[in-house]
């Protein structure tokens, strides 16, 4: 398997104590990586193998040096658009389910906080962030969905997660909406007038 390489170009990084917050300027999404995924993101430089990264996780977090944890973190990073190349097909059979990795960590006596987790949001435009604008509500919903991603770590790998969003949210995700129309709808709504 080719060594994984995380995307760092055009990405703003802020390290918190136990998390890493990334802002991806390429698609205006922000992510909060828990400690495990943050370490994998930092270590995945194209030089280290998955096994070597697993050793880093073992050294830094004390968890078993299990490539399955690294692959799960890489899958999360891939879902967030933070990997240079997709995970190779040959790595997929090694990829354990989140449940399997959780079980292995639990059996080894580790907290679920070590389980790879990424929360993501789409950053709003000023128009989206404005009072009285419909799309802004969509942004908030996405923000909340992103926050809830920690409670439901399968969020980013769940194909229904994005497709289940409302039309406004989908428009928000894709950026495919007309700001003026959204503004007008929002104003009409704020004025308590019937829709056009």
């Amino acid at each position: 398997m080719k060594n994984p390489r995380a995307r760092r170009n055009n990405v703003v990084c802020e390290d918190l104590a136990a998390e890493t917050v990334l802002y991806d300027r390429a698609n205006n999404r922000a992510h909060s990586l828990n400690r495990t995924v943050g370490l994998v993101w930092q270590a995945a430089d194209g030089q280290r193998s998955v096994e070597e990264i697993a050793v880093i996780l073992h050294r830094e977090l004390g968890i078993p040096a299990d490539p399955g944890v690294v692959l799960l973190a890489l899958q999360d990073l891939e879902g967030a658009g933070l990997i240079e190349e997709p995970l190779p097909v040959e790595a997929r059979p090694e990829l354990l389910s989140r449940r399997e990795v959780a079980r292995k960590l639990a059996l080894a006596g580790f907290s679920m906080a070590m389980l790879p987790a990424v929360a993501s949001i789409v950053a709003p435009t000023p128009a989206m962030a404005a009072s009285m604008i419909t799309a802004q509500q969509a942004g908030q919903d996405l923000g909340t969905v992103g926050t809830e991603a920690y409670n439901n770590p399968n969020f980013l790998t769940d194909p229904n997660a994005i497709t289940g969003l409302s039309n406004a949210q989908n428009a928000y995700v894709s950026g495919n909406y007309n700001t003026e129309i959204q503004d007008l709808d929002g104003v009409i709504n704020a004025l308590g007038l019937p829709p056009l």
Partner: peptide, 25 residues
């Protein structure tokens, strides 16, 4: 919320994050 989630909560409601992403974060 974790500190990262708390930060994202504010980020999701910040007005000029796309124009000033580094400063905002």
């Amino acid at each position: 919320l974790t500190p990262g989630q708390t930060l994202l909560t504010l980020l999701a409601n910040s007005v000029a994050v796309r124009r000033r992403s580094e400063v905002t974060v």
